[in-house]
Design a protein around this nucleic acid. Structure first.
Lengths: 193, 193
DNA sequence: CGCGTTTTGTACTGACCGATCCACAACCAA
DNA sequence: TTGGTTGTGGATCGGTCAGTACAAAACGCG
């Protein structure tokens, strides 16, 4: 029983996410967010409270969508080795499609570290969920025989996450696609049977 | 035949570097730089022209000192495998000593990408020099038999750089020392003979 | 001692920052 | 239609931003 919204809230979050993604947290002004979302200042603050809160929304939106895509891949068909291979190749490909903007999570980690607030909590949660998925995949790899045994699955998960994280930074360097594939290949050689 | 400086220029660069390192480029204000260096605004601008120019000085100071230390290690005694092992362990140790501030190069890459200016040039130069050193080390490793053969030394270099870069981001996560060592161990297992 | 030159401290610039205020618009229920 | 409630646009808030202007200060040199 009041005036309805004139915009789609989740679409606004999506737009804000791209603005933060492209320029980082500090370098994105509230005016940039208004421009990106098409909203007036009042609507932005009325809906999202503050720049930081909107960033947190954007970040969790990013991690959630990224995580579901990754989950579909890691819990999909094929051997664990095949799924890890697919994870690395799609990481490289999508990273290059993004015009070397890198990854919002990694960029945020580098820019803000682990703040003692919702942003840090979102980063922590993302890390844990990724590690959980990768650990499970590593465990399955030992069972299906596609991955080397003798390693703690949690360590394998950390290693894969480290490689993926590294690739997301390497994409911001000038690193060529071929070099990135070579990195992925070498990393896989450490874990596949 | 004029009024002499009242401060040490390179000491000021060192202080500015730590300020940028701790908070990133955007989040470090010119006032922060004055506080960190102990200089007045006039002295800062008279000596370093602009915030960006001072950042560039700070960044090259960082890369130069980091590179000489790394060079001493990679071109030092021992087999190539031993030197690469030492590189990874000292990377982890020094990264943890820094209170998880991460690496200025990686943080800058994530925050600013590869700008088309002196900063981008400094980042590019640092990458190339690191890859050159690592490539040479990988080549030597094939000769001294400590590293697996059959891989392009340039690819091995990219892989090691990727691992190191990843670890520098992982240090900004909550990643434990043990997990980081496990990552290093797995990475080494891919390249050592 | 002054004179030329550079550094330094301080005040200041216009622009922009994140955030708020408020009048008005738009809707629903009564 | 009217009253209650929420959304919106635009002006505006105090504060900070990077950078500058300028005069006093500190030296080397004659």
């Amino acid at each position: 029983m009041a005036r309805p919204r004139e915009f789609d809230e989740s679409a606004a979050v999506e737009s804000a996410m791209h603005a933060f993604w492209a320029h980082g947290y500090e370098a994105t002004s509230t005016q940039d967010l208004c421009d990106a979302t098409g909203l007036g200042r009042s609507s932005v603050y009325n809906t999202f409270t503050s720049k930081k809160a909107l960033f947190e929304r954007s970040l969790t939106h990013y991690t959630d969508s990224q995580l579901t895509a990754r989950q579909a891949l890691l819990e999909g068909p094929g051997t664990a080795a095949e799924r890890l291979t697919a994870l690395l190749t799609t990481t490289i490909d999508s990273e290059l499609e993004r015009n070397r903007r890198g990854c919002l999570v990694v960029n945020t980690l580098a820019e803000l570290g682990m703040p003692d607030d919702g942003i840090g909590a979102a980063l922590r949660s993302d890390t844990e969920r990724n590690l959980a998925m990768l650990t499970e995949c590593a465990r399955e790899g030992v069972l299906d025989g596609s991955l080397r045994s003798g390693r703690d699955p949690a360590d394998v998960a950390q290693f894969v996450l480290n490689t993926v994280t590294g690739l997301k930074v390497m994409s911001r360097r000038d690193t060529s696609r071929e070099a990135m594939y070579a990195v992925a290949d070498l990393a896989l050689s450490a874990v596949v049977a």
